[in-house]
Design a protein around this nucleic acid. Structure first.
Lengths: 193, 193
DNA sequence: ATGGTTCCTTGACAAAAGTCAAGGGTTTTT
DNA sequence: AAAAACCCTTGACTTTTGTCAAGGAACCAT
């Protein structure tokens, strides 16, 4: 159940098996069916979810009830409303499963205990967030400086697995485009070959 | 010289004065004149810069030699090409001073020493990056889901100080707009009052 | 002081993206 | 097996944004 989680953990910070058992005691497994919510806007985000299996997304809904996809997460990645998680403020994101999923949850209390007692956990989290920050900065740079087509190419090259598993209209939303526009961009690309 | 740096540090992680002196020994002060580079694309980013005074920006230059502003930093904030800093890869950003500036540099070697020897430093860095990550996620959300005008309003409300100190065309670039478009957006807003 | 940047604005036009509406192919549900 | 929901595509049209060009104000440097 925790294989991938500890694989990723060990890649960042090697653990002895005692440390691993110690940490494991704080983790909560959770299964989610497709379309089930992990978090709804307005609730407090109680856990960081590491994806062992399946796919999830985080999204907002605006006044015109358009969905805007903030983030995808598949095997090996984490997802949460970090702001809500850390501050206890109501979440602004919804998170739900795009496929049946198996998660490893780090609840807020587990997080705080682990930070207090296990220095390697703090290092792990620091590296995790640093990686997420760098990835996000790339995404933002591509968003403000590239035209739609290059943004899409860039996305499919960086995340070929997500591009295949997720409906196109969600990818459009992730890139800040309408489904129609992405459809046309793809057509134009196809016509050129 | 390090007042603001340690003020911010203590807000996140309180330090004894011995700890503070210990950390201070690893820091490097640096002054920068307006228009001077802190980092040029292709170099390796050797330091995280904390701004004690002044204003800086990070930006990329594309094939058509358009500048795209990735980040601003004024008093109390940090700036760097974090990816280059951590991996030693050549930087993809340029960083320069928009006003005469006083910086506190954390060099890569200082960073590693501090991580090894001073647990509170790791906590400080973790909180720093977490804050940056959350801010970036907000910026991205506003970028993909809001029209230009609301994005601009949101920016000026969140960073009124930056909005006033920085040339408009840089703010346009930061938001992924041309200077002309931002100028028109502002005109439209002004006409409505 | 003056000549040169830099910065902002405006106009006319072009390109990109959004909106609305319809249709058809899947998959899911009942 | 039929109905419903979902997803993608396409067309016609509108809105938003970008591009190119010009001009004027403010700031700088010699």
């Amino acid at each position: 159940m925790y294989e991938l989680f500890f694989q990723k953990f060990n890649e960042k910070v090697p653990l002895t098996s005692e440390e691993q058992e110690q940490i494991k005691a704080y983790l909560t497994p959770k299964k989610l069916r497709k379309r089930q919510y992990l978090l709804q806007e307005g609730e407090v985000c109680r856990a960081i979810a590491f994806v062992e299996k399946g796919a999830l997304r985080a999204y907002t809904v605006d006044e015109s009830s358009n969905e805007h996809i903030i983030q995808f997460a598949i095997e090996g990645w984490t997802i949460s409303d970090l702001y809500s998680y850390l501050t206890g403020e109501p979440a602004t994101y919804n998170i739900d499963a795009l496929e049946d999923a198996e998660l490893v949850l780090i609840t807020r209390t587990a997080h705080e205990e682990l930070l207090r007692t296990q220095p390697k956990y703090e290092t792990f989290i620091r590296l995790l967030i640093t990686g997420a920050y760098i990835a996000l900065q790339r995404r933002l740079a591509s968003n403000i400086s590239l035209p739609a087509e290059e943004r899409y190419t860039c996305f499919t090259e960086t995340y070929p697995d997500i591009a295949q598993r997720v409906p196109q209209h969600m990818i459009a939303s992730y890139m800040g485009l309408t489904p129609e526009t992405l459809s046309r961009v793809r057509k134009k690309m196809a016509d050129r070959r």
